[in-house]
Every structure is written in structure tokens, then in C-alpha cells.
């Protein structure tokens, strides 16, 4: 079965081709089934629409077979969905409605550039600091963190502060390196 035939079948709404694409999608959903349970049906519908319009607008670059494209797309959307859920619990500083301050320098960075910078900072951050960030990400209270690490609360807070300062210095160094050549 050739991909171009499948694409035209899908675009013309041929039931069996649509069913085939749905079967590929369902197979890729398997590992997410329990975690995305209630969202799966909507997600399947949404992905099918998005894939169809990507094909219609010729945005499928043919870097892989259609099947791998569809499955990659499903994984991508499932990861997004799970990430969005986790993010909801974190605070948006703008939502605090504090007196306004200067826009963050990050706001002016292209997203890919920022990802690269952020991942480099994390790479060069000491492991002890990474561990602290991980606990914060998991939503641990400072009391829980100090218990887990067996240090006093005051010590813990100072450590987190030092790690933060160090990360921001690292950012300046890395960005400086880049600007200076």
C-alpha cells in the first residue's frame, strides 16, 4: 500500500483508509491509555483532523512513511497533553497582578534559541542543584524537601537561592560567549 494512495484515500474520506489511520493512532495511544483515559476520545478526533489538514495543505514533509508520521504526531500530542496538565499547578507570575516590571529578557528570545540555552544551563548545573530543581518541579514543599535531604529548612532555602543565582550567572556566561563569538 503506497502512501500517496493512502493520503488521497484519507483526504477523500474513504472509510477504510480513515479506519487504518485510526488503527495506527490507537496503537500509539496504548502506552498513554491509562493516564489520558478521559481525554483520549477527544484527542483522537483532534489528531485525525490535524493530520488530515496537514496532508491537505501538503505539510507532510515525507521524512518518513505516513504511518510513522501519524504515530509520531500522536506521541507528540500525548506528551503535550500530559505536560500541560502538570503545568497547570505552577504559578504564572503575571497572574499575581503585582506592580509591573520590565519584560523578561527571555521574552525576546526565539523559542528554539531559548530551549538550547536552557538545556545547556541544566547540563552545566551541579547535580545537587538539579536535584533541588527536580523536587521543586515535583511540587514539594520546603518542609518536605528539608526532610528528604536531612538539612535544616534555613539551610535548604539558602541552597536553593545559591543554585538559582548560579544558574543565572551561567546563563550570562553562556549568552556572553555567544555574543562575543
Amino acid at each position: 500500500m503506497n502512501d500517496e494512495e493512502l493520503i488521497s484515500g484519507l483526504l477523500s474520506g474513504e472509510p477504510e483508509t480513515v479506519e487504518l489511520v485510526r488503527a495506527w493512532m490507537r496503537a500509539s495511544f496504548v502506552p498513554y491509555r491509562s493516564r489520558l483515559a478521559s481525554d483520549l476520545e477527544d484527542l483522537e478526533q483532534e489528531i485525525l483532523l490535524e493530520v488530515t489538514s496537514a496532508l491537505r495543505e501538503d505539510r507532510f514533509e515525507r521524512r518518513s512513511s505516513l504511518r510513522t508520521y501519524v504515530r509520531t504526531y500522536v506521541s507528540h500530542k500525548c506528551i503535550d497533553q500530559l505536560r500541560a496538565r502538570a503545568r497547570r499547578e505552577w504559578l504564572d507570575v503575571d497572574a499575581l497582578e503585582l506592580p509591573s516590571s520590565a519584560p523578561s529578557p527571555l521574552d525576546r528570545m526565539a523559542s528554539t534559541e531559548m530551549t538550547d540555552l536552557a538545556l545547556r544551563i541544566l547540563e552545566e548545573t551541579p547535580e545537587a542543584c538539579r536535584e533541588l530543581w527536580q523536587m521543586l518541579r515535583e511540587g514539594m514543599k520546603y518542609r518536605e524537601m528539608s526532610e528528604r535531604l536531612g538539612v535544616a529548612e534555613g539551610t535548604l532555602r539558602v541552597r536553593v537561592l545559591r543554585c538559582r543565582k548560579a544558574a543565572l550567572e551561567l546563563r550570562e556566561t553562556l549568552q556572553g560567549k555567544k555574543t562575543n563569538g
Binding site: W90, V93, S104, P105, L106, M114, T115, L117, A118, L119, I121, L122, T125, W133, R137, R164, A167, L168, R171
Partner: peptide, 10 residues
Amino acid sequence: AAVAWQLLNR
């Protein structure tokens, strides 16, 4: 802190 948070959560 928000900048650091944004970077380290990337």
C-alpha cells in the same frame, strides 16, 4: 526567580 524557573523547567 521566574526567569530561572522558566529556564530550569525547560
